[in-house]
């Protein structure tokens, strides 16, 4: 009985030592082995990155319908209201100012109005009129008009 007990204990000890060693070895092997193509695919984020906003026909029509009243048909800041405003509407075809503004600042100016970004109160907030996708596309359209990007 005693010999059997000793044999059993020795076997368990050997198995346990073997398991720990295998585990360490396995880890080392995973760390050293380059990931397979399947594993690379598995770690890619599930959600797609948002598509950058596009200027569509709807963007241009929206600009003509709302913005052109002050900023003009071609975005030159000469809309029908322009000469009656205390602060002239922004000329969207001039890059020298617009390149100093980030896309986020332009987005906020459209969504929350001129005052929200420390500019003229003549520019109303369009956040309850235009959805965010449309406002993003308007920002892209302004970038198209000024042929400029944020510095």
């Amino acid at each position: 009985m005693k010999r059997n007990y000793k044999n059993l204990l020795a076997t368990i000890t050997t198995v346990l030592l073997g398991m720990v060693a295998c585990g360490q070895n396995d880890n080392e092997q995973v760390a050293l082995k380059p990931p397979t193509q399947q594993e690379v695919k598995r770690v890619q984020p599930q959600t797609q990155q948002p598509e950058p906003a596009q200027v569509t026909e709807n963007t241009r029509q929206t600009y003509q319908w709302y913005c052109a009243q002050c900023h003009g048909i071609e975005g030159k800041g000469n809309g029908i209201n322009a000469k009656f405003l205390t602060v002239p509407p922004r000329n969207h075809t001039k890059g020298d100012y617009l390149e100093t503004r980030t896309d986020e600042q332009l987005f906020e100016a459209i969504k929350f109005g001129g005052l929200s970004v420390g500019r003229a109160p003549c520019m109303p907030a369009w956040g309850h009129t235009l959805d965010e996708d449309t406002i993003h596309s308007m920002v892209r359209y302004i970038r198209e008009l000024c042929q400029c990007e944020a510095l």
Partner: peptide
């Protein structure tokens, strides 16, 4: 009318 809602612009 003039500043918060910018009505005077139009």
């Amino acid at each position: 009318f003039e500043r918060t809602f910018s009505c005077i612009s139009c």
